[in-house]
Design a binder for these strands. Structure first.
Lengths: 343, 343
DNA sequence: CTGAAAGCGCTTACAG
DNA sequence: CTGAAAGCGCTTACAG
């Protein structure tokens, strides 16, 4: 049997309530008593039973992390690993635990969240994605649970705590970067069109063009749920023509990497014939050749910030729907080049 | 306030013990009563409080997943994401929750595990890596906690439940694959030499050569903790010579990918000049060009199996130090070719 | 087949 | 500054 507060109390010659209070470092307990109790705790190797504590204090010091429904590729993105790691680290520092909620279907995921929430298992949740018409958000919102998001919510924007980059600005900056390199015909290629991030970046792309007085050419925007063979065909069609775009803003590093290989198939060189800029600055961006100029989103900070804001919410230190917007940063590598095309 | 067993009992006109028993589907309760109680639970939206249950039953239905200390690259490997996802899925199916234990240092990680274990927060642990002289394993073992590993343990091999591939055989098969393509000069390049997997694969590589009567050339074995500039130099030295190896067994897809680019720098074509085979069959293997022939380790099954074996252990259904060895499978792509070199 | 009661290990008013 | 006691929401012998 594990050591309990009772064992400590007996050995230290005090009441259990005194032990409980020294654990919490209550100001009412004398330093002398605290010292004594602490030494006994040390000696006995006491560790508080979290279940018991949670039962009475209604606070399990646990954060549930909600992963997107794993429909193949999305979840293979190492992006999530970085987030999980960052969250885990921040939770550790705040003496919180992290519990994972996942599922292969919406229903499964929702069920998993329900047992955690109503079971008093998690004090709050972090949602790692943002997509349209999300039942999960609906549930969290309806049940008035504590939650925060990484990414800008589609609904209840003014009521949800979230941490995000300015993805519209990032899209604009990416596009401006290419514009500054004298590119005029810039494509935007992406999948996961249902994610908020993507929508915002596309908006920024359009804005940047318009601000430069360049008309948005809908043919240059290829956006789908997956890079299907179908999309490949469309990309081929676009880039095999004489008048092909000289640069592309890619939805993320993974897509950019696919494009790198695709363009090779079409005998287009990067960056000589086509410049590519992408988002995430993941391991892919560093590893492909040519290495990719990519926009770093500071995922580690993003994770740290959601955790902190959510804990503030849980502990009642702050109950406003605060938003934290982190800056991005263009990491220049070898996939972009000054455009020399005549026209 | 959330709905408790008391509310259900009152509304259903039974004792709380009866409600508790119908939740557990006790055979002693009549179907009629169960039906009544269940309908009330449904109506009230009752969800059991897991902390209370855990407090009395000493079983939180939670598995702690121990991630390796995150010293940079190791943890960027999407391999871990696949494991986490697989474990999460299997836990869901078994109505267990998964809690993450991580840390930036050994001490931090150990502390995190301790609070989970002694705090009665996790019923058992899954260790996602296997390395030499691991304090974490020492701790788990000394405290006689329930745990299982993905990968073959360095110590207590006969006392630990683990799930693994036959990495030695995988190493042999990889090497044999190249031998069958008429390669004679085969290099073995890896980092993370302190991981059990790597050691085993290297062993298999050597065995395969010896069985073919080919002497192991120590110059052909490049193994380090990281692909440092130092290792790059060594690789260059080895492959720039006239007598360079015609094939390489790479430690994993990530390393293979680095090699692909490195070889390009040296003007060596893949697979014309050099064949590469690697392990993991991750997203990298599919995406690089040329795409990599890689050994799939069935990570999803691996994860599912550890979860099941650990649960058996926790629930006392099985207390032997069972090992589960899963088969691997060579996925042929475009990085290997019949060796045409003269001799 | 069902219920009353004790107890899991904590925290927190309440009293002193 | 410290202690005795109630109670958090469950489960599980024990009795009937």
């Amino acid at each position: 049997m594990a050591i309990t507060i009772k064992d400590v109390a007996k050995k230290a010659g005090v009441a259990t309530s005194t032990v409980s209070r020294t654990i919490q470092d209550h100001s009412s307990i004398s330093e002398k008593t605290k010292k004594k109790v602490r030494s006994v705790m040390e000696e006995l190797g006491y560790q508080p039973n979290l279940a018991a504590r949670g039962l009475v204090s209604k606070n399990m010091r646990t954060i549930g992390v909600i992963l997107p429904v794993s429909d193949g590729t999305v979840f293979k993105n190492p992006f999530f690993l970085e987030m999980i790691r960052g969250i885990s680290k921040a939770c550790n520092e705040n003496k919180y635990m992290v519990a994972l909620a996942s599922g292969t279907t919406q229903e499964e995921l929702l069920e998993s969240i329900q047992t955690m929430a109503k079971g008093g298992r998690a004090d709050g949740f972090i949602v790692l994605y943002s997509k349209k018409n999300d039942e999960i958000i609906e549930y969290l919102h309806r049940e008035k649970l504590f939650y925060a998001m990484i990414g800008k919510p589609y609904e209840y924007e003014n009521e949800i705590v979230y941490v995000d980059n300015d993805n519209k600005l990032a899209g604009r900056d990416a596009t401006n970067y290419l514009l500054a390199l004298n590119h005029k015909k810039i494509a935007y290629i992406n999948k996961h069109a249902d994610q908020m991030m993507s929508a915002e970046r596309l908006l920024g792309y359009k804005e940047a063009l318009l601000l430069k007085g360049i008309e948005v050419n809908p043919k240059y925007i290829l956006e789908e749920k997956m890079i299907s063979t179908n999309q490949k065909e469309k990309i081929k069609e676009l880039f095999i023509s004489e008048q092909h775009p000289t640069a592309v803003v890619a939805g993320d590093d993974l897509i950019a990497m696919e494009l790198v290989y695709l363009f090779k198939e079409f005998n287009l060189r990067i960056p000589e014939d086509i410049s590519i800029i992408s988002f995430n600055n993941s391991i892919f961006a560093k590893m492909v050749q040519p290495s990719l100029t990519s926009i770093d989103l500071h995922v580690a900070y993003l994770s740290e910030q959601v955790v902190e804001k959510l804990i503030d919410l849980i502990e009642g230190k702050q109950n406003l729907a605060i938003k934290v917007i982190l800056p991005h940063e263009i990491i220049e590598r070898k996939s972009c080049k000054l455009n020399q095309t005549a026209f």
